[in-house]
Design a protein around this nucleic acid. Structure first.
Lengths: 164, 164
DNA sequence: GCATCTTCCGAATACCGTTCGGCCTGCTTT
DNA sequence: AAAGCAGGCCGAACGGTATTCGGAAGATGC
């Protein structure tokens, strides 16, 4: 089964760790010694901290933020998906394929009446229709879908702190 | 006004550019010479390409992917926001603050009956209620909101290619 | 076929990543 | 309270990398 959590228990983050994560969340390609300066530790210490954060799963990876228009996929949409039945099997069969469908940026498994929310990027409205028809409505577990175009996507903080 | 697009016109991406972006989208901290090897150009050329991609706005930045649970914000939600009126002023007043609200990961300006969709991370359900009450329902431009919990978020491709 | 412009490469150097030994701090043991 | 122990931090050293620059190769226009 898939219950095993691949995360080392939980040594909580101290202030240095949080600073490292905060900086890397905004600038993943900063040089290690510059990062060390910024958070106030030696470069070697900083390196060990970053490695530890990665090993513990706090930092999952580093990614470039790409302009999808430049890649020829200027149109984005949110697609609500309601499954035909809410069995564990249908959920599993949809969940296992959804993130890999072409153009899918994120998949949200939702509480509430809609089971899944798909954030997708496509070349144009034809491609969007093709995506829904070819991959969603033809999927045996999918009941209904509803597609909403996204005018604009704005990024918020990627290092959320509790708002008092 | 805000119409000026800060993007150099559009020299379309060649195969090398696309390979660079594809690799960096998955591993933003790869060494430049390793990246150069992978895409088949000299290190100096690769460096110039990456710089050009950044200058052109194709690559917007580099980020660490952080486990929000480790930061103490294990709960995520999607909040649909309907404005009181759909004037340009109300849109502008909401759009200008929404991405900066505490815990907001993404803001989507939507076509359709719901005007905005907020993807947020919070510490617990109390913090979620506080967020909605303190920042949304009290905002003068906000009419109704609807909050849906996210059971699970799965990342799709961050380098979408057209699915034929 | 020549001039020009662009792009790529490879070498050189300055910079950075990474390892390692030793020190300091705080905790346990007696 | 002193000794012993463990963990983490630092700084120096070295091996590897980023970045610059001059020149060569290719493309473009006349």
């Amino acid at each position: 089964m898939l219950w095993a959590v691949p995360k080392i228990p939980q040594p909580p983050l101290d202030e240095v760790d949080r600073s490292i994560v905060r900086v890397l969340a905004q600038n993943a390609r900063i040089a290690n010694n510059a990062l060390a300066d910024e958070v106030g530790v030696a470069a070697s210490t900083c390196l060990a901290r970053v490695r530890s954060l990665r090993d513990r799963g706090v930092i999952r990876g580093f990614q470039a933020d790409v302009d999808l228009s430049a890649l020829g996929m200027p149109l984005q949409a949110m697609i609500s998906v309601r499954l035909r039945a809410h069995t564990r099997e249908q959920n599993e069969s949809f969940r296992s394929v959804a993130p890999g469908l072409p153009g899918v940026l994120e998949v949200f498994h939702m509480a509430g009446s809609d089971d899944y929310l798909l954030h997708v990027a496509v070349a144009d409205s034809d491609a969007l229709r093709d995506f829904v028809v070819d991959h969603l409505t033809t999927h045996p577990a999918v009941g209904q879908t509803q597609t909403n175009l996204i005018f604009e996507r704005m990024a918020g903080s990627r290092f959320p702190e509790p708002g008092r």
